[in-house]
Design a protein around this nucleic acid. Structure first.
Lengths: 113, 113
DNA sequence: CATCTGTATCGACGTTTGTCAATGCATTTC
DNA sequence: GAAATGCATTGACAAACGTCGATACAGATG
């Protein structure tokens, strides 16, 4: 038991910040749904804020579900809302643009490999 | 009903490739767990492949669970295995390095905002 | 050869998650 | 003012997910 045979040398393994890992996982979880990602992509391609009714039209789920996903995106700081009268206008944050671009880039790398 | 009042002008909304969205979501889902992300981060910091027993020591879950997560990472092309005798040596792929770096960068942007 | 060890798989369990129908509320529209 | 509309919330439900203990199996160790 003195020395395991699997790896003769001791691995240098700096400890990881679990708080940071939790944050990263939370961010990934906010992106880990097709519907949510589609909503986000729609918002990212728009310069002007978009109201919920238009989003509902573009996604194969009901309005309450869209509302639910938008809340999750909001809590992850990926979108912001501005209410004008009855309508709610959503907008992608710079964070969302970065996140989506990052995922796309990783996917491109996956294809290339 | 002729024209909705929410947005007077019609939005130009190019259709999104649902297949691509599904792929992106799958990738995000593979990253959307703290334990998995920690395993991946450990592998990314290593130059040499790492055996499972060392990974198990570094994460607060049992060996079967680590094995389960490693399978998911494998299926997402984020790690590769090489079996040598009883031992299984895991290694992060370039895709994993890109993905983790991307997430970190996005998080940094979140803090800055 | 017999035992021990490292890893993967299986079955079960509790939790989380995505979706919907129903409802509520605020504001617009007539 | 009354009806209609846009959005959020609630409660319910099924599916997906993370974890564990038990087990299987291959290869190492003695």
């Amino acid at each position: 038991m003195a020395q395991r045979s699997c790896c003769l040398i001791d691995r240098e393994m700096p400890s990881l910040d679990t708080g940071r890992m939790r944050q990263l996982a939370a961010l990934a979880r906010a992106l880990a749904d097709e519907t949510r990602l589609t909503l986000l992509a729609l918002l990212v391609q728009q310069k002007e804020p978009l109201c919920v009714c238009h989003l509902v039209e573009r996604v194969p789920v009901g309005q309450p579900t869209v509302s639910h996903h938008l809340r999750i995106l909001r809590q992850a700081h990926l979108v912001t809302v501005e209410r004008r009268g009855t309508w709610a206008y959503y907008q992608a944050t710079p964070l969302a643009r970065a996140a989506l671009a990052a995922l796309e880039q990783v996917l491109a790398e996956q294809v290339a490999t």
